[in-house]
Design a protein around this nucleic acid. Structure first.
Lengths: 154, 154
DNA sequence: CGATGATTTCAGTGTCGACCGAAAGGGATC
DNA sequence: GATCCCTTTCGGTCGACACTGAAATCATCG
């Protein structure tokens, strides 16, 4: 007996959420993201998400607030509708990834400060210098790479 | 009255540790890293680190084990010395950073799987496709960029 | 082998944050 | 303004994890 399409999709959502949980995003937040990426229709209310993902209304609210805040999800209210509708904001993924890349490169300011503190002592600065060079290169190259990113497909 | 050099260095260590704490590395682990990057002489025993960083022997042990495990710190034992000596392994920072970059790009396998699950439904796959394209590009470009990384200065 | 000085293990403590569900708050319609 | 939903807020619980310090373990030397 074969596994249903929806079953496999919810398994996928769970893997998706698990990945981002490792990066510090709450499990329920990751589930919302995964779900909103593949649901039909594209918009859902908080109540629907709560039911669909079997999470409390409170958790859904907290996580939606977070996701809207970082821009990955968009909230839309409509006249004549008491319930707000949420949907994925695909465009925001570029910013999301960019933040991760700059976070990595940002260590360079740290190593740089350290080098300055050790400026009178080249011997002692040797280990830091190795690390500083690497991060210096990264913080030059990553933004440059990012500029060459392709436009999204239509 | 000016602030002493060592005071400023330990403040730097604290900032350094705080940065990596945000990335999930225990505070004491970060302190060890920062300290070993700038201490003179370059090698320290666990007992010295415990005293210098005012952390319990247990914490030092756990964190050294972790750092040695990821390769950022090297343990050296010597005949005639009961105490092992630890030092920074600057070379390992490249692997450390590379792991971070590949972790970002690895989302591509996830989006890829998702696209496959939605292969019969292009309409529904649109949002995922946008994200998948971005990660697809990243997982091609990041390794390529990494290959061009400079050798460490001597 | 016993003593010494170091490290690792381990049980216990405290903190932090995700999650829940009930109660409070806000719109929309009548 | 009253009612009906839906959302947000908030107190409380639970589990995870960093950290500690004491006890167990290990290595070296006399």
């Amino acid at each position: 007996m074969s596994v249903g399409r929806e079953t496999r999709l919810s398994a996928w959502i769970e893997r998706f959420a698990a990945h981002f949980a490792e990066e510090g995003i709450p499990l329920i937040g990751g589930r919302i993201l995964g779900y909103l990426l593949i649901c039909q229709p594209v918009e859902r209310t908080a109540a629907e998400l709560s039911q669909e993902l079997e999470a409390s209304s409170g958790s859904i609210s907290t996580n939606l607030k977070y996701l809207v805040n970082v821009g990955l999800v968009t909230k839309r209210t409509r006249r004549g509708r008491q319930a707000a509708e949420y949907r994925i904001n695909e465009k925001a993924w570029t910013d999301f990834i960019q933040r991760k890349l700059t976070a990595i490169a940002s260590v360079q300011t740290l190593t740089d400060d350290g080098m300055r503190l050790l400026s009178g002592d080249p011997e002692r600065a040797m280990r830091l210098k190795t690390v500083d060079h690497l991060y210096g290169w990264l913080s030059a190259e990553l933004p440059a790479l990012w500029e060459r990113r392709p436009a999204s497909p239509k």
